[in-house]
């Protein structure tokens, strides 16, 4: 879907072992499957059901999401690095789409 857009905010550099905040947001309706349309028909579920963050291939965070997460899911957590490298953020949509974005970070 063209209207799904991930956004990520991390610092451009961090010192080894220093905790820093990672903020992510993706535009997505998170249709819970529990709502009905104007004609009373159930609107089929379509949510982001999983989000992962990896750094240089190693797991930082792996999250399973349900319909009770708000539209445009916002996820914030703390990460740390021991080397320069690349974060990979991945969102998995019920409709089979996978959205990925990467962010490079330097060692300060």
């Amino acid at each position: 879907m063209a209207d799904v857009k991930p956004r990520v905010k991390i610092p451009s550099s961090a010192s080894a072992g220093e905790a820093f905040t990672v903020k992510t947001l993706i535009s997505h309706p998170m249709e819970s499957g529990l709502r009905k349309d104007a004609d009373g028909n159930a609107i089929p579920r379509r949510i982001i059901n999983r989000f992962t963050c990896e750094f240089n291939g190693a797991n930082v965070l792996d999250m399973e999401l349900h319909g009770a997460v708000s539209a445009n899911p916002y996820i914030e957590f703390e990460a740390q690095i021991d080397a320069a490298g690349e974060f990979t953020f991945t969102w998995y949509d019920d409709d089979g789409s996978v959205y990925t974005t990467t962010n490079a970070i330097d060692l300060a």
Binding site: K5, R7, K9, K23, L25, S27, A71, N72, Y74
Partner: peptide
């Protein structure tokens, strides 16, 4: 602005 969903 990052947390404000209007920015989408």
């Amino acid at each position: 602005d990052f947390e404000n969903p209007a920015f989408i």
